[in-house]
């Protein structure tokens, strides 16, 4: 486990390396999850944009599998947290333990201290625990007993949530979901993919055979490089208009925040890099608008990802594309 912040500026910035990394990751994940090119693409985009990923879907479609595959592909450490109602924040962050031998307190880091952290069923943890997690995600550091400890770099959280269950759950409210860069629904596999799974291709066995495609440091470098991708002012205007559109829509009580604009921009930059481009074009923004914005909207009569996605897609379809 690496616990220190990496000085990104010192790393070699290579755009081509970032693109290659993205390609390798995508291919690797594709070996494990069959027939789900789009969720894989979005997961890699979220990773490369430097924001966290929330997988929201019914049980059994491979959310955990995807997160594990991601962790293995990156070659870093993997932490796993299972959301249960009795989960305490200390179990995430770690505790200080008194060591009789040295008459001193020793800090034992919790599962958060990993490169890729899977938080399974985050909606079953109590709001208090959720807050602790989200704060850690935002600040990339944890304060225990007065001492702050940095979380590793890269630090990527994949959280999963089952939107259908309501009993005994504490669903993330919109303000909390705002902390995730993208929300992806995996969906049931196609018939061919499910058959392949039954016949032994892909799945957990393939997971065992995955080799890492890069080092964590390389990922950090790629993320930093991607942040430098050029974005024209017209594209920035377009993103702002999109987000403003979500705010002014009749059905929406609370629209997307400026944090959302930023995260959409980073995701678009990642998308551009994955397409081999060193600048952002409107199509990058359009492709990522729904995953990046839909979960941040608070609608009248309850927030439903499907409805919100519909609203965002409608806005994307009607807003004129910048012409440069």
């Amino acid at each position: 486990m690496t616990s220190s912040r990496v000085d990104v500026a010192a790393l070699p910035q290579s755009f081509g390396a970032a693109t290659d990394l993205a390609g390798a990751l995508t291919e690797n994940l594709g070996r494990v999850i069959r027939g789900k090119a789009e969720p894989i693409r979005l997961a890699v985009t979220a990773l490369l944009s430097g924001h966290h990923l929330l997988l929201e879907d019914v049980p059994g479609v491979g959310k955990t599998l995807l997160a594990k595959a991601l962790a293995r592909s990156l070659g870093g450490s993997f932490g796993r947290i299972q959301g249960t109602p009795d989960l305490l924040p200390a179990e995430l962050t770690g505790v200080s333990v008194f060591r009789k031998a040295s008459e001193d307190w020793e800090f034992r880091p919790g599962p958060l201290f990993a490169n890729v952290v899977l938080v399974d069923e985050i909606n079953r943890a109590t709001p208090r625990t959720q807050s602790a997690l989200l704060e850690a995600m935002a600040e990339r550091q944890v304060t225990v007993d007065g001492t702050s400890w940095d979380l590793p770099d890269p630090f990527f959280v994949v959280a999963t949530q089952n939107p259908v269950e309501h009993v005994g759950t504490f669903p993330l409210v919109e303000g909390q979901r705002d902390r995730f860069g993208l929300v992806v629904e995996i969906g049931h596999p196609s018939k061919a993919a499910e058959r392949d799974l039954l016949l032994g291709a892909g799945g957990a066995e393939a997971l065992q055979g995955l080799r890492p495609v890069c080092e964590p440091l390389a990922l950090a470098a790629a993320v930093a490089t991607i942040r430098t991708v050029y974005c024209a002012p017209a594209i920035a205007d377009y993103i702002v208009d999109l987000v403003a559109g979500t705010r002014h829509h009749g059905e929406v009580v609370l629209g997307a925040s400026p944090r959302a604009s930023l995260s959409l921009l980073h995701a678009a930059k990642a998308g551009a890099t994955m397409a081999g481009r060193q600048f952002v074009v409107p199509d990058d923004v359009r492709a990522l608008a729904v995953p990046a914005l839909a979960h941040r909207l608070m609608l009248r009569g309850g927030s439903d990802l499907a409805t919100a996605s519909g609203i965002v897609s409608r806005i994307v379809d009607t807003l004129p594309v910048p012409r440069g």
């Binding site: 200390a90 505790v95 200080s96 333990v97 008194f98 307190w105 007993d145």
Partner: peptide
Amino acid sequence: VYAPGDARK
């Protein structure tokens, strides 16, 4: 009594 794992505070 203190049990390992209790918060210091």
